[in-house]
Design a protein around this nucleic acid. Structure first.
Lengths: 192, 192
DNA sequence: CAACGATGTAAGCAGCTGCTTACAACCGTA
DNA sequence: TACGGTTGTAAGCAGCTGCTTACATCGTTG
């Protein structure tokens, strides 16, 4: 930590990224309202005034945090396995590793109506489009939204309300049940 | 409004209920953190100090708001039609009428980790038990949780992020799709 | 009618929030 | 070495938050 701070001295790019990293995990854990700019700065080991120098406002930082990470997953994952990939990602509780916090940040931002709504909307559209490509139904987008809603709900019950037995269930078991039922809505999903 | 205030003077029960009503709708609309005690008191047409006299704290008021409304729906609705009933309730956007805000309050309380967590947990268990009675599978509770998660997710995308096409879709269409897919998880659901 | 508890009100307090400002330390350049 | 922009820091401001306190008013009961 101290070394990092030493190494980071006089390095604006690293400082910016440290703030963005800290913000992403804290927003995912506590949500927008409950995360203070002082918390973020402290976690990043950075003076909080710099947060405003580099991002302008707490909301702008939030938008950037939401945007980062969501896009590349969609871009780099084939639609056929997107559902399972996202599902497994949000079911995996290992804090280490490169877990994707996007969905949790998404969820935790409930209270804040304005904050990042444009970014959130765009991100949602990308997921819908990807999932909609899996069905030939005329209401493909609606069906895709329903699947997306399911992911959101599962993440909510598991991560936020920590509801058992869902919170404690094995990932494989949940994946199987969800994928089976999703085939009623979407056709082209890879068999596990 | 003025008449109500006049009529309510020196009536502690009515004052309490006015606060509870205002709190329920405001928590549902803005969430716990974004709703201030001054807002609630103003909406109820009541001095804010009374809020603390009757409920002790903002959190206690929140818990009571969550608890009220959820129980009777479960108690008065047959499990076979519970899913459709809850679904139609949260899909109906008519603000007038006796809409049940429970699920939305549930959702909007994301940021607040402690607030009402015990109450929320108990309420969730009741829903799970009711839904689990619809299947003979050995992992009935898990399957029920997944259905509950779906409801939560749909409510989230529709009410909070207002995601289209889900937000704009007809209730009947959604009900049909969800019920059909849910039959993969649960057996005994009334045909529409 | 006097007294007393129940109900309502106005004002304020201490703490926290996002954000700003004024300034110090640093570092490449001339 | 002197300068000037970049990066980092400390302090503070104005506004809002949940909550409390001291007091006024009502309505019932003896």
């Amino acid at each position: 930590m101290t070394e990092e701070q030493r190494a980071r001295r006089r390095d604006s790019a690293a400082t910016r990224e440290a703030l963005l990293d800290a913000a992403t995990t804290m927003f995912a854990d506590r949500g927008f309202d409950r995360t203070t700019v002082r918390d973020i700065a402290k976690e990043a080991g950075v003076n909080q005034a710099l947060l405003f120098r580099y991002f302008g406002s707490k909301e702008s930082l939030f938008e950037e945090a939401i945007a980062r990470g969501g896009h590349e997953q969609i871009a780099t994952t084939k639609p056929e396995v997107l559902l399972e990939t996202v599902l497994r990602n949000l079911l995996t509780s290992e804090t280490g590793g490169e877990r994707n916090h996007t969905l949790r940040v998404f969820l935790r931002s409930t209270g804040s109506n304005e904050a990042g709504s444009a970014t959130r909307q765009r991100l949602g559209e990308e997921y819908t489009r990807a999932l909609a490509s899996l069905t030939g139904a005329e209401d493909a987008d609606l069906r895709a939204d329903l699947v997306l809603a399911w992911l959101v709900g599962i993440s909510f019950l598991r991560d936020i309300t920590e509801k058992d037995p869902l919170a404690g269930a094995e990932a494989d078991r949940i994946v199987k049940l969800v994928l089976d039922a999703s085939r009623t809505l979407l056709e082209r999903i890879d068999e596990t």
